[in-house]
Design a protein around this nucleic acid. Structure first.
Length: 515
RNA sequence: GCUGGCGUAGCUCAAUCGGCAGAGCAGCGGUUUUGUAAACCGCAGGUUGGAGGUUCAAUUCCUCUCGCCAGCUCCA
């Protein structure tokens, strides 16, 4: 059997050898820095058996896959510590994150900071004990029996959700056994610096109807110096937090008397905003947009027609009664732009028509989600609606993308992740129209050569969208949250306007748009 | 909305067991006259988020309420 080391030698070995011994045979020193290996493209334990010719890449902490294995084993160590300190805690899930890991436990009470100290001390002890981490495979039936006997009801539920024929793997270290796909470090002693960070409640399977679990976050690094550098970075991020800076520089405030998520722009903040808005107006005019204004409220009937009452009510403030009809505070600008379009009979020769507005909208957000300027109840959207013929869609979308990248680039955002968000569960319009609109967006992306990923079900109720996620200096490394990105979206809708009226909306959030 | 943690001077934070609300910075008035991160002396600054309760006495204990923070969920 032939084993090749990437960028290294090639060796004949006997079948049945482990990945680790194959690496040794190839002359690699198996120190604590070698965490796992990629075998023919699949990440595997060093202890797994080689069954066929393979190309092997040793994984260290400097690779994404290596870090994932490292953090995943770290969270198992934490889970083992929790079980040793609090035997009645039940295991649920515990994945690796970009900068650390978490594990959710079912426990009769929340963990306190004192608990964390005990758990962390125990975890360090487990690291010192350097338990070998062993993989075992069993049938679904045996796996259910195993975890039932251990009183791990959540694990049993997880296993029952797996396919019947599937082999199920469990990993053990000392007396601790967990259902896990793996792979893992060879021993618990492979983890260097280890620290628990904080606790939080989290619903089982992310559903608020389910019981709340106790989540513990932590992180780990090969050396104390790396851990310290990471903690220093967290401090630095805290120091640069826009809420802190906004207060210190006297840019903005929120006040109890005004209400949560409603921003007051102080003179200095307003000056910054004015400069950005002037830039926005100039650029839109230069790029063929016409600027419009629309009111903050409108008759509820308009929002019924637009579909917002049916599909967006959860995010709308309650309607208010005026004279004999009901009025609604606007959560979006789109219906107004469509009404402007509709105010005349239009010829196909007039198209495309591009309306742009810095439109202030109000959305009801649950109190728990409000966050500085990034998540508020009143904010101003950089919003536009483009009316065009079907044959113009691709070039219009493509221009919107260019325009978006240009604006973002002006503010120094040059790293993007592009997502194509498809039809959500609650949506208006036929499957066929959704498919048409989605493929139009897709071909614009392809035509422009933009790399993108599909984000299934993440479209808006009236159309699919292209999301452009950007990272800024502070958030790129923001711990434990993957979705804290600012986002811009281009939505294509053929669904609301009656005639052949695809409409692309461009909007932004964040510093250009809140309040 | 849910779980947990918080709310004391403009800011950052103290206040032991329920026993006269305090410090640093900022501010103001002086002194000094240039100090390389923030020179020295003094003054002022408070309905302890709000309402109710227990108590001789509440920043402290209880109830309700408002807001903030870390998450969950949703999303921009």
């Amino acid at each position: 059997m032939k084993v090749t080391l990437k960028n290294g030698g090639c060796q004949e070995i006997h079948a049945g050898q482990t990945v680790g011994s194959a690496l040794s045979a190839l002359g690699l020193k198996l120190g604590p820095d070698i965490l796992a290996a990629k075998v023919n493209g699949r990440t595997m334990d060093l202890s797994s058996i080689l069954a066929e010719d393979a190309e092997v890449i040793p994984l260290q902490f400097d690779s994404v896959e290596g870090r994932e294995v490292y953090r995943h084993s770290s969270t198992h160590i934490m889970a083992q510590a929790v079980k040793e300190v609090f035997p009645t805690a039940q295991l649920t899930i515990g994945p690796a994150l970009d900068d650390g890991f978490f594990y959710d436990f079912a426990f009769e009470r929340p963990f306190t900071p004192e608990d964390l100290e005990k758990i962390e001390a125990k975890a360090k002890d487990i690291i010192k004990r350097a338990h070998p981490v062993k993989r075992a495979e069993l049938s679904k039936y045996d796996a259910v029996k195993l975890f039932e006997s251990r009183g791990e009801a959540y694990k049993v539920e997880l296993i029952q959700g797996l396919d019947d024929g599937q082999t199920i793997s469990v990993y053990s270290q000392g007396d601790f056994t967990d259902l896990c796909r793996g792979p893992h470090l060879p021993t618990t002693g492979h983890v260097g610096a280890f620290k628990l960070l904080n606790t939080a409640g989290a619903y089982w399977r992310g559903d608020e109807r389910n019981p709340m679990l106790q989540r513990i976050y932590g992180t780990s690094f090969p050396t104390q110096a790396e851990l310290d550098a990471y903690l220093a970075k967290l401090e630095e991020i805290k120091r640069r937090d826009h809420r802190k800076v906004g207060k210190e520089l006297d840019l903005i405030s929120t006040q109890d008397e005004v209400g949560p998520g409603l921003i007051l722009w102080h003179p200095k903040g307003a000056t910054i905003r004015l400069l950005i808005e002037n830039f926005w107006r100039d650029q839109h005019i230069q790029n063929g947009y016409e600027l419009v204004y629309s009111p903050h409220i409108a008759r509820l009937d308009l929002w019924k027609t637009s579909g917002h009452v049916d599909y967006y009510r959860d995010n709308m403030f309650a309607p208010m009664k005026v004279e004999n009809s009901e009025y609604q505070l606007k959560p979006m600008n789109c219906p107004f732009h469509i009404m402007i379009y509709k105010s005349h009979l239009r010829s196909y020769r007039d198209l495309p028509i591009r309306y742009g507005e810095l439109g202030t909208v109000y959305r009801y957000e649950r109190t728990g989600v409000l966050h500085g300027l990034l998540r508020v109840r009143g904010f101003t959207q950089d919003d536009a609606h483009l009316f065009c013929r079907p044959d113009q869609i691709e070039s219009e979308v493509s221009q919107v993308l260019d325009f978006t990248f240009f604006i973002l680039g002006t503010f120094g955002f040059t790293e993007f992740e592009v997502y194509l968000s498809t039809k959500p569960e609650k949506a208006v319009g036929s499957e066929e129209r959704w498919a048409q609109a989605t493929s139009a967006l897709e071909s614009a992306l392809k035509g422009r050569g933009v790399a993108y990923q599909i984000d299934p079900g993440e479209g808006v109720f009236y159309g699919p969208k292209i999301d452009i996620k950007i990272k800024d200096a502070a958030f790129s490394s923001r711990r434990m949250r993957s979705n804290r990105h600012k986002k811009m979206a281009t939505t294509l809708s053929r669904l609301r306007p009656r005639r052949c009226l695809p409409c692309a909306a461009l909007w932004t959030t964040g510093n250009t748009s809140s309040s």
